[in-house]
Write a protein that binds this DNA or RNA. Structure first.
Length: 449
RNA sequence: CGGAGUAUAGCGCAGCCUGGUAGCGCACCUGCUUCGGGAGCAGGGGGUCGCGUGUUCGAAUCACGCUACUCCGACCA
């Protein structure tokens, strides 16, 4: 993409409504525009990141055996009356009426609808286990939306729903999502740490929140520091095998949010030099809720013995529109965002230091073609701007690698690569630049780990 | 929903106290000169001062009402 032809409205000053760093940087980098309280447009650069985040989520869901579909945003109130939640949900649910004065609502979640789909089509234990998910816009009329897209009223959520014959099956479904989530966050360059969460009236230990560590996190978290560097399950993990050992391995180390923490237990169970008190952003939540919806909505299958069985369900959420700011909170510096390659809007920013100079333009154009041919997602800053302005923009929008080309280096036949994360610079022959970037970038895509 | 604030050009702000019809920086347009860390000079365009009512000869400025947005708290992917 040529920057001169792109839509990238960067700002020098951050709008005063933004308080936290990710919100400021998303506004300054031209990623989002606020439309109302808790309501944002995703501009091209931001949307590109959001899409990459969603793709990773989908890949890992699919890998774990979940199946994608798409449900509507507007739902009929009838389903919610069946489950009893229409009255229970409260002001957070946006209620509306259609032209026939029928009660509708903008979906804050989809347990009822997915259960309705399930009961319509699935009637035999042979069709289980089943996990259906979608990535869809949700609306929750929060009392106080804040922090940009971190807590917005309209937000994107991946919500998966598992159906099993019994508790043991549901447990394995839960573990599959547990593993998929570990991998999902890792692939985005994050450490997503599972923490025991309140499972409400259901009880049991089948509710985990995944938190990303960041200074600006909304909850205080207490964990064993070994969790931060714990190796994640590899790409070839067999999701049809018993995943209990992985779950037990991860959950044997202490990790809890301020709501669940028992500080005495924390100090007793975790060695002093491993006790980590930090702040976390909740980016995912997995939850087993048994027959809470299948029972009132009569989602049953016929078992092997010919008897009717009410299915056990779980739901599993990830918020991509929250993940984007969470990644920024976890990875930025004074100059701007530092994207991990796997979610970066572009992998390389080619900087032409003297646009308009014949030789430099010629060399850059050639490089730009070569970068694209090599499969590298490239933003080409071909604008007629001073070098400083280009560097500042590149740092702000956080492209992982800058390929810098100017008349000075070109005289020697050299280009320069700047690593956004470390600030490291390397000078190399122009002809070697593309191969070098490929070698740097491909492993960091984390699509084969 | 309780508490605290803000609203003047796309963004950041001044002007308001002490009413006289709006200004600065960045951004934008034109020209020239520049060009390795947010360039310089010259010229130019853009605002019913959030909305309404009132006071006044006259309101961005004073009074009252409303709305929107932000922050802190209780709640949530």
């Amino acid at each position: 993409m040529r920057l001169s032809r792109y839509f990238l409205p960067v700002l020098k000053d951050s709008p005063k409504e933004a308080e936290i760093v990710s919100h400021k940087l998303m506004l300054r980098a031209g990623m989002i525009k606020q439309q109302a309280a808790g309501s944002y447009s995703w501009l091209p650069l931001g949307y590109k990141v959001l899409e990459k985040v969603v793709r990773i989520v989908e890949e890992e869901q699919n890998r774990s055996g979940a199946i994608e579909l798409k449900m509507p945003t507007l739902q009929s109130a009838d389903l919610w009356r069946e489950s009893g939640r229409y009255d229970a949900y409260g002001e957070e649910m946006l209620r509306l009426k259609d032209r026939h004065k029928r009660d509708m609502l903008y979906g804050p979640t989809n347990e009822e609808m997915i259960t309705d789909i399930f009961r319509t089509f699935v009637h035999s234990y042979r069709d289980l286990p089943l996990n259906l998910y979608h990535v869809q816009w949700k609306f929750r009329d929060e009392v106080r939306p804040r922090f940009g897209t971190m807590r917005s009223r309209e937000f994107l959520m991946k919500d998966a729903y598992s159906f099993d014959l019994d508790f043991a099956g549901a447990q394995q479904a839960f573990y599959r999502m547990f593993v998929a989530y570990l991998r999902t966050f890792y692939r985005m360059g994050l450490v997503g740490i599972p923490m025991r969460a309140d499972s409400g009236p259901i009880g049991g230990d089948m509710s985990y929140e995944f938190h990303v560590l960041a200074d600006t996190g909304e909850s205080a978290v207490f964990l064993d520091a070994d969790l931060v560097h714990k190796p994640i399950p590899p790409i070839d993990i067999d999701f049809r095998s018993d995943l209990t050992p992985i779950f037990k391995d991860w959950t044997s180390l202490y990790a809890a949010t301020d709501e669940m923490v028992d500080e005495a237990e924390f100090r007793a169970k975790v060695p002093a030099d491993k006790q980590l008190s930090a702040r976390g952003i909740e980016v995912g939540h997995i939850f087993y809720f048994g027959t809470k919806y299948s029972d009132p909505m009569k989602a049953t299958v016929t078992g092997a013995d010919g008897k009717e069985v009410t299915v056990h369900m779980g739901s599993y959420g990830i918020g991509p529109t929250r993940l984007v700011p969470a990644i920024i909170e976890a990875s930025h510096d004074d100059n701007g965002i530092i994207w991990p390659v796997s979610v970066a809007p572009f992998e390389v920013e080619l900087i032409n230091l003297k646009a308009g100079d014949h030789d430099t333009d010629f060399a850059c154009d050639k490089l730009y073609d070569a970068l694209q041919d090599a499969g590298l997602d490239t933003l080409y800053d071909d604008r007629d701007q001073p070098a400083g302005a280009k560097f500042a923009t590149a740092d702000l929008i956080g492209i992982p690698y800058q390929l810098i080309l100017g008349p000075r280096g070109l005289k020697e036949g050299n280009a320069e690569i700047k690593h956004r994360k470390t600030g490291e610079r390397e000078t190399l022959p122009v002809a070697a630049a593309v191969d070098r970037l490929k070698a740097l970038i491909e492993p960091e895509r984390r699509n084969t780990v």
